[in-house]
Structures are given as C-alpha cells and as structure tokens.
Write a protein that binds this DNA or RNA. Structure first.
Ligand SMILES: [Mn+2]
Ligand SMILES: [Mn+2]
Ligand SMILES: [Mn+2]
Ligand SMILES: [Mn+2]
Lengths: 254, 254
DNA sequence: ACCCTCAATTAGCCTTGTCTAATTCTCAAT
DNA sequence: ATTGAGAATTAGACAAGGCTAATTGAGGGT
C-alpha cells in the first residue's frame, strides 16, 4: 500500500498542440509517428534537392515502402506534403513549419541536456529524439529562456527561434576542404545518429574547438592537431565537420 | 530549404526500459498506456483497500469498462497484476515496482519544472503526466541529482528514491481535523488534477506555508489565516490538505 | 518501339487500444 | 431460494501503423 497520490487522466493521442498550452501551428494534433515522417522529409529535402522519394523515407525511417506510401497519403490529406504519384513528396509551407517546430524542440532539448544536466555531448541525440514529440511549446520556450535563447545546439546545429526562423548562420567550409596548415574553429558536426558523434568526441573534436590542419592526404584523410593531440580522420568523417577560420585574435573579420 | 541536420531513426514503441539506459525493472517495454493503467491501479489501491475494480479504473482512465477488461488480461499475462475474474485486480510485486518508477518520474519532473524552469506550482501536473512515460532512467536520475534528491515534490508528495523505496514520511493530519486556534504547517496537498491545485494556489495555501486554524465550522468548512490573509475552505478541499503542527521555534519535537 | 528493372502502389493481414451492443455473473434484497 | 440491478466479460468493429506478397508504372537501354 505504501504512500500515493497523483492520479491520471488519460493522455496520449497527444502530441502536436493537444490540449496543453497554446493553439499551436499546424493541423492540430499530429502523432509522434507523423512528426517523425515530417522531420525526416525535411532533413532529406534539405540536403538533397527536389522531391523526396518513398524509398528514401523508408530507408531513413526503417520501415517498408508500402508503409511509407500509405503514410504519405495521410500527410497529403492533412495538407502537410505535396505529393505526386510515383514521384515523391515535398513539404508544404505548413509541413515545413511543423518540421521546424520539431527541430526547435530537438535542439533545445539537446542544449538543455548538456548545459543543465551535464549530459555528454555525444549522448543526447536519442533522448532528445524521443522527447521532442512530447514537450509542450510552453516547456520548450521555458527551456529556451533558461538557456538564454541559444542560436545553436551542442553540435553547432542552428536552433529556430520561437517564430520558427533560423538565426543567420556563419560561413563555413568542410574540414575536408580546408587548407593545409590553416587554423580553424569547429562550428558544426553534421550527424545522423550518435555513432559519428561518439567517434569525434573520443577524437577531441567538437564545436568551439580550434584545430590546426596538419595534412590533407590524397584520398581525403585529414590530419588535425587538436588541443589533445594529433588525430587522423577519414574522409567521410571530415566531410561532416564544418569549420571556419579561427578567430584572428580579437574577433577581427576575415 | 533553409538549414537542417539531425536525422531520425524511428523510435516509439518505446517506453519502459527500451534500448536507452539500463535493463530496467519490469517485463521490458511497456506502452505508455499500460503504464497509465499500472499507475492508476496503484493510486486507487493505495487509498481504498482490497482489489481494484474494472469500473473504478474505467472512471479514472476515462475509458469504457470493456476496454479496461481486455487491458487487465494483458497486464495479467505480463505478470503485472493478479486478476480474479469479476473481482478486480491488485498489483503484483513487479507491477508495484513499475508504478513506483512512474511515480518517481512524475514527481521528479514536477519538482524540476518548478525549481529549475520557474513553472507555477499548480501548472505542472499535466506536463509531468505526459513526460513521465518518455524520460529515461538516466534522465530521471540526472534530474534527481540536479535537485539534490529531494524527498518530496512541489505538492508534498513523497518521491521514491532510485531504489524505489519511499523516504520516511512525517506524521500529518488533515486540515479538516485540525484543532481550532492551532498553528500548523502545510505538508502536502492531495490532488487528482490541476483544478484543486489552482484553487489552493489562489488561496495562498501550498506546502511549507504556515497557517493558523481560525475556525472549523459544523459542516467542515475550515477558516485559516494564511500569510496573505484569511481564507475559508470547503470541507472537500480541507480534506485534501495534510498539515503538521508548526515547528515550535527551533525544530523541537512535539 | 519494346523490354527489363526497379520503384511505387495496392491488397490483405496483424497488433494495440478503443468503442458499442449483447451476454453473463454476483450479490443484496426480498 | 429467487430475482433483479449493476458490474464484468464477450463479440464484433474501427483507426493507426506496420508487414508481406502481388501488381503496376516509369524510364533507360537496345
Ligand atoms: Mn523523433
Ligand atoms: Mn543536434
Ligand atoms: Mn501519464
Ligand atoms: Mn505531485
């Protein structure tokens, strides 16, 4: 029997804009699953171009093509994607707003976990990926406030503001394209999961760190000098790292 | 097109002990819905006695009796409840551990929202009620640590520790049973939702506050002197408030 | 123009959690 | 001992998300 209290009124069936808080953007009440589709469409759309294919989504979401196919029809009905049979989808204006909102949740959660709860930089993606669908706008905004409305998350990914527009991003190049001998600051680590992040965390490469580009070998292997020592990074990893020229002493423009 | 990154691997189907973190208590992987059933069974069990009926659960969870009936069979198969046909259920040892874990999540989240994110005391239940099913043990423990392992949540409800045992509770009586003229400290506010809490928040009655019992009227109406002035509380509200004699100056035992 | 391959969609089935309608128990009151 | 009311369970459906197998469409190569 022990102690108790706190009762439940059933929740779930929840997610986008539910009862809690403000009359959110979007076609009220998307499931966590739909949100993941939208978020994934946005991600694929933004680093390939043109329409997003059924099979690309199936790969990213780890479901089968027929499953994607039927979900895309539902998303079309909801007005979140423009669909052209056999040709794939693109997000509508509204779909893009939903995506941005989820991304805002995700990145603020990541920032919060590292800054306030001492989480490891490489260990936050999964937690955020789950919670992003369950935090209210209210909570998201309070987190943003507690962190001072940061422009980027711990991986250097830009965080949309409350009105869902991105902060201006600084110019960067891929580490793989950096000049030998140059001194650069890591600005952002592109990533799909926690694997690449853990690799780089171990290598001592993370946003804000300054690197000296020691060598760029023929097949893209990049050797850098980190504060913790010299590291060689395979091309495919070096491609994920965005860097900018190291701040020349006192923030002088380049 | 804007900016982007952060991909998804499908999650969901998540909840209890999933992949993230430790091999949690319980029959791995309960849905949020099952967790709510377990939590509700625990709540009913602890302030009535004996078995929990199908209809009581249906009321609390706001679903129909047949729905409860079929869910109880599933929970029985999972070994979380002992079920006796037509007689209701009780939690098994294992079921109780699941309940305690959810309660720990819930109350730590409530404490965290008020203490670290400046949430209003009366406005946290719903947010916690949703998130409790989605925070990992890891996150829960970090929250507990950040708060210094508090023994109670903002409503005075005791928080199970990491090993799921309750801290010793202080002796209390219901405000409705307090002596006229006595000086008491509010220890705990029993509540089912946010409604009672908002009422009392407005009345200036919350844990830690000292009250003087001005008058206990025949039908249970209690009038108290709060730091903010005199308040009359209906019996049904006074029943929810647990108080202890106000600390006599320097923590002298009573 | 024709074909072949691969992507996409359709068809049909499954599980979870819910509902309504119908049926079956239980138990207290006669 | 009966019986009737109310509680619980069974039966049958449905929506959401998934899956496999079968079918259809799109396009490049010849
Ligand atoms: Mn996600
Ligand atoms: Mn990130
Ligand atoms: Mn809940
Ligand atoms: Mn509480």
């Amino acid at each position: 029997m022990v102690a108790a209290s706190d009762d439940d009124s059933p929740d779930d069936g929840h997610t986008r804009s539910d009862k809690g808080s403000q009359p959110n953007v979007s076609t009220g009440m998307l499931s966590a699953v739909m949100e993941d589709y939208i978020k994934t469409i946005y991600a694929i759309e933004s680093d390939s171009d043109g329409r997003v294919s059924t099979s690309a989504l199936a790969d990213h979401l780890e479901v089968t093509a027929p499953t994607v196919s039927s979900m895309l029809k539902k998303l079309e009905e909801r007005g979140l994607v423009d669909r052209e049979e056999y040709k794939g989808v693109t997000l509508t204006e509204e779909g893009e707003l939903v995506a941005l909102e989820i991304i805002r949740h995700h990145r603020l959660l990541e920032a919060f976990l590292t800054e306030q709860l001492d989480y490891d930089w490489a260990d936050i993606h999964d937690e955020a990926d789950r919670l992003e669908h369950h935090v209210s706008e209210e909570l998201t905004d309070r987190i943003a406030e507690a962190l001072g409305n940061p422009p980027v998350d711990p991986h250097g990914d830009p965080i949309p503001d409350a009105d869902l527009s991105f902060p201006k991003e600084s110019e960067t190049i891929r580490l793989a394209d950096a000049d030998e001998g140059g001194r650069v600051t890591v600005r952002r680590i592109r990533h799909q999961g926690d694997a690449e992040l853990r690799y780089l965390a171990d290598a001592g490469v993370r946003p804000e760190v300054e690197l000296t580009v020691v060598d760029v070998a023929p097949f893209g292997m990049v050797t850098v000098e980190t504060p913790a020592g010299e590291q060689s990074l395979p091309e495919e990893i070096a491609q994920l790292i965005e860097v900018a020229p190291a701040a020349a002493a006192d923030g002088v423009e380049v």
